[in-house]
Design a protein around this nucleic acid. Structure first.
Length: 682
DNA sequence: CTATATGAGCTTTTT
DNA sequence: GCTCATATAG
C-alpha cells in the first residue's frame, strides 16, 4: 500500500430523519432511544458507532451489546459498511452472554472456577434438574422440569441467593429452596456454567474484585445496549456497574415490544431509565419505514390501552394502505385452509415469491392445522423455530459425548450417555456408581476406572464400562492435540459406538437416518469452525460456539421461497409484506395462562409486535369452534381485535371472503377486491 | 437390562 | 396429535 494521505472519516447523516440524527450525535452522557417498530433502529445504532469513531473516540473503547447473535452480526455488518475495516475491527459488538463468557474465561479463577468451564444449554440444565429431583425425592414431573428450570433461571436472573429464596415464601414451587442450592453446588462441582451464570458471575466478579471492574471501565468508555426492554435484573446491574458515574450509556429499545417478561425481563428497566439517570436525554423514533398507516394506526390504538408505557405514536410517509381483514372461520381447519387459499390468491395477484408471506400464531401447536392445509394446497412452507436443532435428542447425546471428552468433571453428561446406545450398564449399575460417589466422593469418571466399581457389576457390564472409559481417555488425549477436529470428533463418536448405535436406538429406519444426518451436521459445524479458525480450533471452542450460537442462520436459508410459519415471539424483528395472524381468540391470544399475573399488558404488546410485522396487508383470523386438547370448545374473538378502530377493518367470514353469497356481500366483496387490486397496482 | 406398550399433558423460549 | 415417563414382559 502506498502512503496515501488518510481521508478524514466522514459519516453521512443526510439520509437520517431529525430524530434519528439526534440519537446519533448525542454522544456523551446517558441516552434513551425509544425506537418504535420499523423506525430504523439498527441503522441508527450503527450510525452512532461510526459517528463516535469519526469524532475521535477510540474504536476499542466502544462496546455494543445485543441479545442475539443475529443482531450482533447485523450490527457489525452495518458498521463495517460505514467505516474502514481497521477501525471497525477493534469495536466490541457482541451478545451479553458472549461478553460474559469472554470476561469470565480471563478472570473466573478468582471465583473458584476453572477457566475452561463448559457452558450448559437448556437440555443440559434439564438433565441436571432431573437428577437432582430424584436425589431430593421430589416428584419427577410435577411441576415439569421445564418449570423448575425456569424458576432456577428467574432466581439467578434476579440475583437471589439460596438464603433469600428460603426466606421468600412468594411463588416458588415447594421444594425449590432445597433444589436451588443443590443445583448451584452441582454445577460448580462439574465446572459448568449456565446462561444466567455468564451474567451473574460477572456481577459477582465485579463486586468482589473491584479492580477488574475498574479495568473494564477504563477499556469500555462508550456503552450501547440494544433491545433494552428485554434486559433482566442481572443485565441491568451489569450495565449500571460498567457504565459507572461517567454513564456514557446509550440504551435503545421499545417498551411496547417487551414480550419476555415471563422469562425475567424487567420492563421497569426501560420505563425507569430516567429515574435512574435524571439527566438522561430521551429521543423518540416514531417515523416508521415499514408499514402502511392503517396498520400503524391500528397498532397505535391497541397499544394505547396499556397504562404503563412511554408514549409513542408511529406514523409513516407511505400511504394509508389496505384495510385490515378480520376473518371468522368455522373451526381451525377452515381457518387453516383459508390461510392457504389466501396465500395462493394474494400471490397470484401480487406476483413475487412465497417468502413475502408469514402466518403467525400465539402458540406452537397451532402450526399443525396450518401445516396440513399448506401441504394439501401444495404451498411450500417453513415452520420456524419450533424444535431447535440443539434440542433434538440425538444432538444432545452427541454433544454430551463431546462435553465428556472436554471436561472430566462433567458427571451429568456421563450419566446421560453411559448407556447410549445400550451397553448393559442400566439403572442398577448407575445407582451403584452414584452410591460410591456418595461415600467416596470424586468424579464419576474417576470412580469408573478405578476402585471398587467394576467389582459390583456383572461381568458384561464391567467389560462395557472398562471399554467405555478406555475409549474416552484415548480420544480425550487425541482431541487435545491440535488439528483435524471434525475428523477426530467423527472418529470418537464412531469408536464409542454412538454413530452405529443410532440404528439400534431409533426404530423406524427412516427416523434413524434422519437423526444420523443431524449428528453429521455437527461434524459440518466443526469443519466450518476449522475453516474459520484454522487448524488449531479446539474442542472447547467448538462447544462454546455451538452452545452460544443461534439457529437462525439455518432457518434463514430455508425460508427463501416459502411461507414462514412461526410464533409471534419468533417473528420479533422480522417483517413481511403480508402477515396473517391466526387464532385471534379470547383465551388463546391473550393466552389464558397469562391473564392471571397482570400479563394482559404483555399479551397486548405481543399483539402489537404481531401487527407491526406487516408491511402492506394484515389479516386476523379466528375460529368459532376449536379443538383444544381433545374436546371442542366455542371461541370468542380476541378483545385486541375489537380495540382496533372499526374504520381500519373489514369484518367477514371465510365463506364470503372469497365467494359472495348474497347481493350485498357480493357488493362488499367487489369493493374489497377493488381495494386489493388497487393496492397491488400502485 | 432392553425393548415395547400404555397413559398423561400441553404458552411464549433471544442466550 | 405428538412427545415424554413410567410400567411390564421378555
Amino acid at each position: 500500500m502506498p502512503n496515501l494521505p488518510k481521508n478524514p472519516l466522514k459519516v453521512d447523516l443526510s439520509q437520517l430523519n431529525p430524530a434519528q440524527r439526534e440519537a446519533v450525535v448525542s454522544a456523551d452522557g446517558p441516552l434513551l432511544v425509544l425506537a418504535g417498530a420499523g423506525t430504523g433502529k439498527t441503522r441508527v445504532v450503527a450510525c452512532r458507532v461510526a459517528w463516535l469513531v469519526a469524532r475521535g473516540v477510540e474504536p476499542g473503547a466502544i462496546l455494543a451489546v445485543t441479545f442475539t447473535n443475529r443482531a450482533a452480526r447485523e450490527m457489525k455488518r452495518r458498521i463495517a459498511d460505514m467505516i474502514p475495516a481497521a477501525m471497525a475491527e477493534p469495536i466490541t459488538v457482541c451478545t451479553f452472554h458472549s461478553f460474559g463468557a469472554r470476561l469470565l474465561r480471563l478472570h473466573i479463577g478468582r471465583l473458584g472456577y476453572a477457566p475452561n468451564f463448559d457452558i450448559a444449554n437448556d437440555a443440559y440444565v434439564e438433565g441436571v434438574v432431573q437428577s437432582l429431583l430424584t436425589e431430593l425425592g421430589l416428584p419427577a414431573n410435577n411441576p415439569p422440569t421445564a418449570v423448575w428450570k425456569q424458576c432456577l433461571s428467574k432466581a439467578k436472573a434476579s440475583l437471589l441467593t439460596p438464603d433469600e429464596i428460603a426466606a421468600d415464601d412468594a411463588g416458588w414451587p415447594p421444594g425449590f429452596e432445597r433444589l436451588y442450592p443443590r443445583y448451584i453446588m452441582r454445577m460448580k462441582a462439574m465446572n459448568v456454567l449456565d446462561f444466567d451464570d455468564l451474567l451473574s458471575l460477572v456481577v459477582r466478579l465485579w463486586q468482589e474484585h473491584p479492580e477488574v471492574l475498574e479495568e473494564c471501565r477504563r477499556q469500555y468508555r462508550y456503552l450501547m445496549v440494544d433491545e433494552y426492554q428485554d434486559t433482566n435484573h442481572t443485565q441491568f446491574v451489569l450495565t449500571s456497574l460498567l457504565a459507572g458515574a461517567a454513564a456514557n450509556l446509550c440504551v435503545v429499545g421499545d417498551d411496547d415490544q417487551s414480550i419476555y417478561g415471563w422469562r425475567g425481563a424487567a420492563v421497569g428497566n426501560i420505563l425507569g431509565f430516567q429515574d435512574q439517570f435524571p439527566k438522561a436525554k430521551v429521543v423518540r423514533l416514531e417515523q416508521n419505514y415499514r408499514s402502511s398507516n392503517t396498520i400503524l394506526e391500528a397498532a397505535n390504538q391497541v397499544i394505547a390501552n396499556n397504562p404503563r408505557r412511554h408514549h409513542k405514536a408511529l406514523w409513516s410517509r407511505g400511504g394509508q394502505g389496505d384495510k385490515i381483514m378480520i376473518v371468522k372461520a368455522k373451526n381451525e381447519n377452515e381457518e387453516a385452509e383459508f390461510a392457504a387459499s389466501l396465500v395462493r390468491e394474494r400471490k397470484a395477484v401480487r406476483g413475487g415469491s412465497l417468502d413475502q408471506f408469514a402466518v403467525l400464531y400465539r402458540s406452537n401447536h397451532l402450526s399443525r392445522s396450518l401445516e396440513d392445509a399448506f401441504r394439501r394446497a401444495g404451498i411450500d412452507y417453513c415452520v420456524v423455530g419450533a424444535k431447535s436443532f440443539c434440542q433434538r435428542r440425538e444432538v444432545i447425546d452427541a454433544l454430551s459425548f463431546l462435553r465428556l471428552a472436554a471436561n472430566p468433571r462433567d458427571d451429568q453428561s456421563l450419566l446421560r450417555v453411559l448407556n447410549v446406545p445400550p451397553r448393559g450398564i442400566g439403572d442398577r449399575s448407575l445407582g451403584h456408581l452414584l452410591e460410591l460417589q456418595r461415600t467416596l466422593g470424586g468424579t464419576l469418571q474417576e470412580l469408573m476406572v478405578a476402585g471398587p466399581f467394576p467389582q459390583g457389576l456383572s461381568a458384561a457390564a464391567a467389560t462395557a464400562a472398562g471399554e467405555f472409559s478406555r475409549c474416552l481417555q484415548e480420544w480425550r488425549s487425541r482431541l487435545r492435540q491440535p488439528g483435524g477436529l471434525a475428523e477426530k470428533i467423527r472418529g470418537y463418536l464412531r469408536e464409542i459406538g454412538y454413530l452405529d448405535g443410532l440404528a439400534r436406538i431409533y426404530k423406524p429406519r427412516q427416523d434413524a437416518i434422519r437423526r444420523r444426518e443431524n449428528v453429521l451436521e455437527l461434524f459440518n459445524a466443526a469443519a466450518e469452525l476449522e475453516d474459520r479458525r484454522g487448524s488449531d480450533a479446539t474442542l472447547g471452542e467448538f462447544l462454546e460456539l455451538f452452545t452460544l450460537r443461534d439457529d437462525n442462520d439455518r432457518v434463514k436459508g430455508r425460508l427463501e421461497g416459502s411461507v414462514a410459519l412461526m410464533t409471534v415471539h419468533a417473528a420479533k424483528g422480522l417483517e413481511f409484506p403480508v402477515v396473517i395472524v391466526i387464532g385471534m381468540e379470547h383465551e388463546l391470544f391473550p393466552h389464558h395462562n397469562s391473564l392471571k399475573e397482570g400479563g394482559l399488558e404483555e399479551e397486548r404488546r405481543l399483539f402489537y409486535v404481531a401487527a407491526t410485522r406487516a408491511r402492506e396487508e394484515l389479516y386476523l383470523t379466528y375460529a368459532a369452534r376449536r379443538r383444544v386438547g381433545g374436546n371442542e370448545s366455542v371461541r370468542r374473538v380476541s378483545p385486541f381485535v375489537r380495540e382496533i378502530p372499526v374504520c381500519h377493518t373489514i369484518d367477514t367470514d371465510v365463506a364470503s371472503a372469497f365467494k359472495p353469497a348474497s347481493a350485498e356481500t357480493a357488493a362488499e366483496y367487489l369493493t374489497k377486491m377493488k381495494e386489493m387490486f388497487g393496492a397491488a397496482n400502485n
